[in-house]
Design a protein around this nucleic acid. Structure first.
Lengths: 345, 345
DNA sequence: TTGTACGCGTTATCAA
DNA sequence: TTGATAACGCGTACAA
């Protein structure tokens, strides 16, 4: 591939002049400039970013690490990040951690070697993370997304998960529900799931109800009805549940319907995240919407500000209750006639 | 950040020796090596990939361009690509084109300047693409994903969309459907949607039925019932439809149910792609499953082979019919009693 | 086994 | 307005 030197030769100038023609066109006489551009054209010259990066000690690249792209929450955030970054002349190196600490470590190390100008990470647990401990020693611009801010010492972009969890709960309470449960992924939950649960507990107590133990599913994004059965039977059975993410909620609704339950007739189901698809289902998913695109954009803009050396303030982004057909008045409040047929479990 | 020279000084050796300790450890005496590693540790030395890339004329980076990460098909493919690339020591630069030719052009130019070792692209229409025309002149390893192979001259990873479209159609025919429609995104469809339609037409004709005109939706991934209403009414109304992607199908099912139609009772709906979520819905989505993860992995491995200079053969990857509850026997075949109440349109 | 020296493609400083 | 030169950090051919 043609380099600046060959362009310069062909144009009959020195390499320095050729370089100037691109970086500061006004510093070179128009006629000369023309010759250089022509030569560049003829040789199909393409500036070598790697050389520029080495020389300028800046890569214009952002390292991004998300848990998984199989979850639309992260994919939708990433989509917005890519557009925002490109608009500012930056590229994204994208990696997935699967929440694995060792992968997290390798990924970040790799990105540091690549000399990315900054990092945008979503870690499993920000308050207890090897990779963040390591990053604290470096002084590279670094930002968390979705992880609750505070304990980690890193600025974080996301919603107030505790308030959001409480809002979800209050929505159900306002509908008349009292026996409300919460469903999450496997044992080592993400830090944000914990906060959402905390918000649920607070809202329940404030309303004078007893918060229930978290019901844990075997998988992060797929509900299995068996684990939930006990909580759906008997006198004290739930009339509504909140899932810690939308995929869990959607799959739960599917399982329930397949088993003969009506949603929200027999059980109201709320999600959390607000992935786009939820609106198009029937029943549409009632959920707490995180502004995924806005989070992605804000993350990029905030990081770029940090890279420029500006001090940046960050407040939690607003979440919103997205009403949907998957929640309704509890059966006990309705006239007890005409309820849908429920299969025996 | 500490560089090799400072490590060398601290270890009391020349820079060349320090470099060798990392690149060819066996060429340096163990004791010396030890000193160098210790010095590196103390200085928190981190090899500079940018310098390595400039020196070696290879970046170990793959440029990836997909239309949008908001569609799980691409996100799921990308997830697999990232893992495969990392396993081989490569990083991914990820970009989104929104199917915009100008964006496609800018993105590819940018990646070429970054000197990525290869490209994995999904373009709007491979048989008529400026960016591919340009790429034909370069000689950088380049691979298409999802785009039909053949006309473009580039090797492409994906399923046989024509056969897949025919398989979907035959599945419905086997169920007893005769009035089968096909639904796609907006006018400038993707090349693969066209092939799927072609497969549909062939299968319909083979069975002695008349293929219908493609029904076009305003958006790529969201159905609007209004455009479809005419085809659902009257004597010749569809008993089944195939959507060119899963998001379209899922949103259509939601719209239908909300309008009082039963799926598959009143209308069988098939999707196309096989995104993970489809299985967890009720009714579960009947669809043609593309092996998204396998496609991603194969793309990476094939590209790496091309980068190594190996000649690689590529056959279409197998698609599969994923049966689901969203299709069933047409109403006309069933005893015409007890059908669900249909709202007037 | 280790050191010297050059080049990868740019940019920026300093002279001319 | 232009040119010579050094530097960014690394790898390696060649010499010692």
């Amino acid at each position: 591939m043609a380099d600046l030197l060959s362009v310069a030769k062909r144009a009959g100038v020195s390499r320095a002049t050729a370089a100037r023609a691109f970086s500061s066109p006004d510093l070179v006489r128009p006629a000369t400039r023309e010759k250089i551009f022509n030569a560049a054209q003829e040789l199909a010259f393409r500036p070598n970013k790697v050389a520029q990066q080495l020389r300028s000690q800046a890569t214009q690249m952002i390292g991004v690490m998300v848990p998984s792209l199989d979850n639309p929450v992260f994919a939708e955030q990433l989509q917005a990040m890519e557009v925002a970054a490109r608009d500012s002349g930056y590229s994204l190196i994208v990696t997935t951690s699967e929440y694995s600490p060792s992968r997290e470590g390798n990924i970040v190390e790799e990105m540091l070697r690549q000399r990315v100008d900054g990092l945008v990470l979503t870690v499993a647990d920000a308050s207890n993370s090897d990779v963040l401990d390591k990053l604290r020693m470096e002084n590279i611009p670094c930002l968390l997304v979705y992880n609750p801010p505070g304990t980690s010492g890193f600025t974080s972009i996301g919603v107030d998960n505790l308030a959001a969890g409480a809002d979800a709960t209050r929505h159900l309470i306002a509908l008349g529900h009292e026996r409300i449960g919460m469903i999450a992924g496997p044992l080592l939950q993400s830090d944000r799931a914990q906060q959402r649960y905390e918000g649920y507990c607070q809202a329940m107590k404030s309303a004078g109800f007893l918060p229930h133990q978290l019901v844990e599913m075997a998988r992060h994004t797929q509900a299995d009805l068996a684990s939930l059965k006990p909580a759906l039977q008997g006198f004290q059975s739930f009339s509504a549940v909140i899932c810690t993410n939308d995929l869990l909620a959607i799959s739960l609704i599917g399982e329930l319907q397949r088993a003969g339950f009506a949603v929200p007739g027999d059980l109201s189901v709320m999600g959390f995240d607000g992935i786009a698809l939820g609106q198009y289902l029937y029943p549409s998913l009632c959920t707490i919407e995180q502004p995924r695109a806005d989070i992605g954009r804000t993350a990029v803009h905030t990081l770029l500000a940090m890279i420029r050396g500006e001090s940046c303030t960050t407040a939690p982004l607003p979440h919103a209750l997205r009403k949907g057909e998957s929640t309704g008045i509890p059966a006990s409040r309705k006239s007890n006639t005409g309820t849908t047929q429920r299969s025996t479990l």
